[in-house]
Design a protein around this nucleic acid. Sequence first.
DNA 1: AATGAATGAGAATTCATTCAT
DNA 2: TATGAATGAATTCTCATTCAT
Lengths: 209, 209, 209, 209
Amino acid sequence: MDFNDKQKQIIETAEQLFADRGFEGTSVRDIAEEAGINVAMISYYFGSKEKLLEALFSYRAGDTVQQLEGMIHHKVLAPLEKINLMIDFYINKFQRQQCFFKIMMREQVASQHGVTSGLIQHFKKRNQQLVKQLIQEGQKTGEFSKNIDVPVLMATLIGTTGHLMATQHFYREINHLQEMPDEQFQKLIKKKLSVHLKFLFKAILTHEI
Amino acid sequence: MDFNDKQKQIIETAEQLFADRGFEGTSVRDIAEEAGINVAMISYYFGSKEKLLEALFSYRAGDTVQQLEGMIHHKVLAPLEKINLMIDFYINKFQRQQCFFKIMMREQVASQHGVTSGLIQHFKKRNQQLVKQLIQEGQKTGEFSKNIDVPVLMATLIGTTGHLMATQHFYREINHLQEMPDEQFQKLIKKKLSVHLKFLFKAILTHEI
Amino acid sequence: MDFNDKQKQIIETAEQLFADRGFEGTSVRDIAEEAGINVAMISYYFGSKEKLLEALFSYRAGDTVQQLEGMIHHKVLAPLEKINLMIDFYINKFQRQQCFFKIMMREQVASQHGVTSGLIQHFKKRNQQLVKQLIQEGQKTGEFSKNIDVPVLMATLIGTTGHLMATQHFYREINHLQEMPDEQFQKLIKKKLSVHLKFLFKAILTHEI
Amino acid sequence: MDFNDKQKQIIETAEQLFADRGFEGTSVRDIAEEAGINVAMISYYFGSKEKLLEALFSYRAGDTVQQLEGMIHHKVLAPLEKINLMIDFYINKFQRQQCFFKIMMREQVASQHGVTSGLIQHFKKRNQQLVKQLIQEGQKTGEFSKNIDVPVLMATLIGTTGHLMATQHFYREINHLQEMPDEQFQKLIKKKLSVHLKFLFKAILTHEI
DNA sequence: AATGAATGAGAATTCATTCAT
DNA sequence: TATGAATGAATTCTCATTCAT
């Protein structure tokens, strides 16, 4: 999908507000005001508030899985190294697109009737497919154990990352890091998550315990 | 807090709708209709929609931590066994109160200005305190490794459980379990999570890898 | 259908405005203002603007045909006298409910997709059925000619009455009757139409020409 | 008034939509879309939506009366034959310009404040004048009765024709003619009306009853 | 001459809450 | 204690029109 500059501006403003207040908790007036545009422009460019959300999804989630696929398939790496690559890819995505992932987390919790549930479903399926392949590679070489439950594994990656990101203010507080510059804090949290999740994945996949 | 039967009925109806459609996505009319009561009763009993949400939180989250504390302190168990007890306690809570936890997950993602964020914050702090104590016990006896990051650990427990619970329809679909009776499916998912998380916690806490 | 006083007040206000400005040309704000009530009351009582129009139709057109049937069947009259009774009944209805019939005339012209077209259709069918019976009575006794086209006949009655009523301001002007009190003018126009249409009907039905 | 091709195209598209949905029920966007032109062109060419309606009236109603006058005055015919000519002229006009006459019927019902009411008024006056002359001719020769109410007579012609045309779908249905090709149906209805109205006019004008 | 972008005003409707009883 | 009626504010969206090009 191609969006012009004004559309991008609206989408990005909406993203921040949706992340902060939820889709229903954000009015088109709020978005228009924040973006410094006329309310009618949202209908003009996207048709409706719902279609703006869809546009946001296609803007953000567009090629995430493709990127991941490209990254993993075109490198010559041991299976576990590919898994680690994927872990870092996810953490990075999550961190760079925190607003979008907050929205996704919320939408995921909601009932399955919304406009986004189909998109998320599709996205998740392709992603699980890819991870399954990676794991099967490792199982063929004997490096990985049998009986790996991919959805549970991915729930660990996404659930842990999402939860820590979403509650990072709490993490700061409990560790008395309120004064740390955000850039530094993001690096810290990324490192923490990376080490933690790679350790967990290795434990599960290789069962060396 | 004491709630009479009508209040409980309202709270429980609201809980289901909030879980399904979000707080902002649910109108007091929806709640009143679903609960078979008059719209005015919600303002009458709780003052406002926001205060109904607060009431829901105090109704559900009231003594969770106390229950956990009681359960753990009054048993003579090895540190890891206590940790395992806590893991199962959480999974059980989550599973029995899926609606409430869906709401909490959403609210947690939101900005820190809502009425619930204070309550959640408080709840989380007490809980992390408790886990910290449990871990320190294990560290004293030498069973647990040093340098355990409690918030990251808890993010793993809560994030993974929450994510899997929230996306259970997807888990059913990907494993072709759409026809399985819900009771059986809940048992299955609980067992899966229990084994998975206990394994992860042991790996992290004992570092035997 | 039962309507309370407030509902009747809204319906009657809406009727006048719809007659004057058309359905689409009248806003719920206009109605609310004119009726001296809050805008939200219209949604509250009727659900929507469209349903208000439906309510108006069931309020006005409810038992028109029934009244006519009762009136005609329970009298012992010659066929032509029954026809004359019907003509006067229509003229009277039209005159007493000018606003409503203006709305009906407009809706009748519109495409057949609106909410009212079904109601009008139904109303027209029952009515034509009744007239057909009356005419067949006259045909059995030999008083009326064969080959009477009922829809064309009714188009003459309704079309002529409707047109003259709708353009009565023009009739006043062309006959220099602008100063005549409305009551008197209505009587005049009613008499004119009555004589005119009875003459036409007699001519067509008895073919004495 | 002179209209270029594009203007004519817009006018004719607007005519169809106004006839179907009413003036207020049609948006300039609808017209633009249907006509395959830019929304701004309507304002550009006509100034406003209202002025487009005025343009439509001057486009259609322009020389109708002149045509009728020319037709009647330049023929040497008996008064009743001239009347019959006029009846057919009207039926033909109505049938060939159904959309336009639907609009006129609606506008005629409306309050006398619209942009079109003046135009319609003017048109009607000239027309009644002409008919009056025709009738006076007949009265002078003794062929026509005295005391003919011209507006009532014209209401019969216009009201009956308009009503039958506007409800032709109903006429088809009641006579089980849904499958008849439109061309054939239009001929049928024209013939029916012609015979019917000529009979009625003769009856009234010559009073041979 | 023609148009895509933009807009303020107004549309219908829903909202949480209050009021009178 | 409980509620049907009522309402002002806010919701999303559409409207006819204008502007810059």
